[in-house]
């Protein structure tokens, strides 16, 4: 096996995928993604739903044939040397992919055999994995009797069976409670520190990406729009703070926003979002309006901003200032919030 320069384990080059849509229209899900993932790092792909994360992972795990481009895993082309490349990868798919009527142990043993494991070696390895995912005592229970969090752990366990050098984890924390989410994040960190595993992690949640990643690529509409360490990404946006002014149900005009932008030094952006809070029967019970302001040195800009708001006839109900984070980076680059 050969690695690229600087210990690069995964080289993705100009990868693209266009799906044939149902109505004959083509869907360009991924439009030319290039990435380098280094040996031993946790690399995150951060982007909103529909950005193309799963499609990208599917292509570099050999599940989908790219429309264009290629990826090399440990030097092996995923499109032309698929079997060799696949031996190096462990995949944890976004959706649980297990046989529900088989037990946890049977699932693990079966998938282990697909990596040419067998006999005592397989038994021992399955024991280890069960221990690692903390399900030794439930190993003989059927998957369908498991809670969502337990299923997730088995789903991860399958990806670890053959001690892969590289692990893909596609949104492994979606749909589980905070306790299990914590557990998954700790697992990822342990895999890196204890086993030297390289991890490609995707998520639409900036908090977890921020916590675990060595390097991050932000993906939106099938394209990488920024990449680097957390520090590098924040620097790219000039370290702007975000100030949230809650305004309740009040209607805010574009003229009022323009006034805010004009009259306070350091403000680069001011946008208004209204969100209706619905109760039973879909009746609107409240309206939550927020003005988001981007400003350098937000704390200093706050007093003049509140003054300007008053002059612009905006009633501010409460104020929150946030230091720059990935959310801010994404907002800055796309003009949209990550969670939409």
């Amino acid at each position: 096996m050969q690695n690229g320069k600087n210990g690069t384990l995964v080289e993705v080059r100009d990868l693209a995928k266009t799906f044939k849509g149902k109505n004959g229209k083509d869907v360009a899900a991924v439009k030319g993604v290039s990435l380098d993932i280094r040996q031993g790092e946790i690399f995150s792909l951060l982007g909103p739903n529909g950005a193309g994360k799963t499609t990208t992972i599917s292509m570099i795990s050999g599940l989908l044939a790219p429309t264009r481009g290629d990826a090399r895993i440990g030097g092996y082309s995923i499109t032309r040397q698929g079997i060799d490349a696949k031996k190096l990868i462990g995949v944890v798919p976004q959706e649980i992919a297990l046989y529900p009527t088989l037990t946890a142990r049977q699932n693990l043993e079966f998938f282990g055999r697909m990596y040419s494991m067998g006999g005592a070696e397989l038994t021992k390895r399955v024991d280890e994995v069960l221990d690692f995912i903390d399900l030794t005592d439930r190993q003989h229970d059927k998957i369908e009797t498991f809670s969502g969090g337990m299923k997730r752990r088995v789903n991860i366990g399958v990806g670890l069976l053959h001690k892969p050098r590289l692990l893909y984890m596609d949104e492994p924390t979606v749909g589980i409670d905070p306790q299990n989410r914590r557990r998954v994040l700790d697992t990822v960190k342990r895999l890196q520190s204890e086993q030297g595993m390289t991890v490609l992690y995707t998520s639409h949640l900036m908090e977890e990406v921020q916590e675990i990643s060595d390097r991050i690529a932000i993906i939106d509409h099938g394209q990488i729009i920024a990449g680097g360490t957390l520090g590098e990404l924040i620097q790219q946006i000039g370290e702007e703070d975000r100030i949230f002014l809650k305004v309740g149900a009040a209607a805010i005009s574009e003229a009022q926003l323009a006034q805010l932008r004009r009259s306070v030094e350091g403000v680069t952006k001011a946008t208004h979002d209204r969100r209706e809070i619905k109760g039973e029967d879909d009746a609107v019970v409240d309206v939550d309006g927020v003005i988001t302001v981007l400003a350098k040195r937000g704390r200093k800009a706050l007093p003049p901003l509140l003054q300007a708001a008053e002059e612009a006839d905006i009633t501010v109900l409460s104020v929150e200032v946030r230091e720059p984070d990935l959310e801010a980076v994404f907002l800055h680059l796309t003009g949209r919030a990550l969670r939409d």
Binding site: S58, D84, M114
Partner: peptide, 14 residues
């Protein structure tokens, strides 16, 4: 639908 077929495809089998 349960994703196991896709999972198998990501494994080193022909």
């Amino acid at each position: 639908q349960q994703g196991t077929l896709q999972r198998l495809v990501t494994m080193p089998i022909t």
